[in-house]
Amino acid sequence: MRTEFRKFYRPGVLWALALLAAIAGTMITTSEAQAEYGDVVINNHSDAAGMRPVVFPHWFHRVRFRCKVCHADLGFKFKAGGNDINMVKIIDGQFCGSCHNGKVAWAVDSCDLCHSGKPGTPTQVHESTINLLVTPGALTPAPAAAGKR
């Protein structure tokens, strides 16, 4: 048994193992950049209006509000891009404007804080099963729009 082990325990074998581990390690550390699970990109009107698309961080909001606050009280549908939101409605206190009014959260004059996405990024729930399995490749900005700004 011991001689068997000695046979295996040669620098050559160890070098091969080390090399494999190093390759595997590099593959792990250089994995693709990904936003947080559940981040929603809303690009219904932004690109056309020359604004960056909106990135809505679900994680930030659910630390402070239960789902029902927005999805029941405020009437947000469970669908990325499925809510007919525009700036007039927000200024009027609907949708995001219920809180983003300068009292609870920043007001509409802080454009860049919400309109913070890469130009050309399609409307989506980032990292969602649909994006990963049904429409892979839909995550990245359209080539024409990328690098526009």
């Binding site: 080390a18 595997a24 792990i28 990904q34 936003a35 947080e36 913070s116 996405g117 130009p119």
Partner: peptide
């Protein structure tokens, strides 16, 4: 390498500027 692999298993979150959907050129980021 095994130490590095262990560090990888700890929770990590990408900074917004590198997450692939935020525009790193946005000054408000």
């Amino acid at each position: 390498v095994s130490m590095a692999a262990w560090a990888q298993t700890a929770r990590q979150w990408l900074p917004l500027a590198k997450d692939g959907i935020h525009d790193p050129r946005n000054p408000a980021l």
